[in-house]
Design a protein around this nucleic acid. Structure first.
Length: 360
DNA sequence: TGGTATT
């Protein structure tokens, strides 16, 4: 398992050689001679911690041809930093990826897909740590306070995990480092309007001063998770309820693109394993595409691949597809939850793939 | 001082 992790640490996926900038048919060039990928290059934020480069490429490759993509990882530990870049060949596919994958729920996360800003030193280290905020101040109010110094990319107020009350601590990421510097000059030690205490504004700690212990802990968890065998049925059902609540929140039968949950069928335990657990999904509509499979199965855990089987002549879905999931527990829960599930006007049949599936 | 927004 350690070997597997290390072998993917420096993986980069790219189709074709480095572009011949400036040659006929090469990419468009901006004024300074750099390739202009502003219409094709996307940044993807809030990825699940355990998503791999291969899963990342598979998800975004389902939209269109990828020029290159990279899941950004910690240089030392190899752990995902939770974001990545996808550069498409066709600007239309970049636009399509934003429209179809932005907001996609994967496990506990809702991913964000947007155009990447041109890479530049001026946009680095622009994240601020703010403390001493009035507990009553909302994220919106905090943004209003800081927006006079520049364009805010993200903001967050930390809350008590139990009560949900503000801890008076937050983060503000500006578009440009100089904007962050100006905000420190203007707001550090100042009292917001109506506040009784001054706030502290400084640059946020750079993430990732990971210790060797953190690396070992990560490797241990990764290794331990792979060999979990079948669970007792009761345990499975309990875990299923928990997972649905985690994935879908209180309205657990109403995920974004799914209109109703009609049944929770039993788990078919006959599936085989090799490089993951292959799941057979039957009764998809002719219009079904890969994104629907990502949306259906993504919330249940690590999905490494999805495939809609299409008719060669018409390119319409032949009514079925396959999903590969890494972990047995997650695959079993996805099957238990999605078998019998009504998608549009169709009742899905979902099971582990068997060698004689067509007889069903 | 969190979850991870510039390769």
């Amino acid at each position: 398992m350690v070997t597997q992790i290390i072998s993917t640490m420096e993986t980069q996926v790219s189709n074709g050689p480095t572009s011949n900038s400036g040659l006929p048919n090469g990419p468009p060039l901006s004024a300074n001679g750099a390739a202009d990928d502003s219409k094709t290059n996307l940044i993807v934020n809030y990825l699940p911690q355990n998503m791999t480069q291969e899963e990342f490429k598979s998800l975004f490759g389902s939209i269109g041809e990828i020029e290159s993509c990279k899941l950004v990882r910690d240089k030392i530990t190899g752990q995902s930093l939770g974001y990545g870049f996808v550069n498409y060949v066709d600007p239309n596919d970049a636009d399509k990826a934003i429209n179809t994958l932005n907001g996609l729920k994967l496990q506990m996360k809702t991913i964000k897909v947007s155009y990447a800003r041109p890479s530049s030193a001026s946009i680095r280290d622009a994240n601020l740590y703010v403390s001493g905020l009035p507990k009553s101040m909302s994220q919106k109010e905090m943004e209003q306070l800081f927006s006079q110094y520049g364009r805010i990319i993200t903001s967050r107020i930390l809350v008590d995990q139990v009560t949900g009350v503000s801890r008076g601590v937050g983060f503000i990421r500006f578009d440009k480092r100089i904007e962050a510097e100006e905000a420190i000059k203007g707001l550090n030690g100042q009292k917001p309007l109506g506040a009784s205490e001054p706030i502290t504004v400084k640059f946020a700690n750079n993430p990732s001063q990971k210790t060797g212990q953190a690396l070992l802990s990560h490797l241990y968890q990764t290794t331990a998770r792979r060999y979990t065998g079948p669970l007792h049925h009761q345990t499975q059902r309990f875990r299923l309820d928990n997972l649905l609540n985690m994935a879908y929140g209180v309205k657990r039968f109403s995920p974004i693109t799914i209109d109703s949950m009609t049944s929770l069928a039993g788990v078919n335990l006959t599936g085989a394993s090799s490089g993951g657990w292959c799941i057979f999904v039957y009764n998809l509509s002719p219009e079904a595409d890969e994104s629907v499979l990502w949306q259906l199965f993504g919330p249940f855990g690590a999905v490494t691949n999805v495939k809609v089987i299409r008719d060669f002549a018409t390119n319409k879905c032949k009514g079925f597809g396959f999903v590969t999931m890494t972990n047995y527990e997650e695959a079993a829960m996805a099957i238990a939850s999605l078998n019998g599930y009504r998608l549009g006007d169709r009742i899905l049949q979902v099971s582990f793939k068997t060698s004689k599936q067509h007889k069903a």
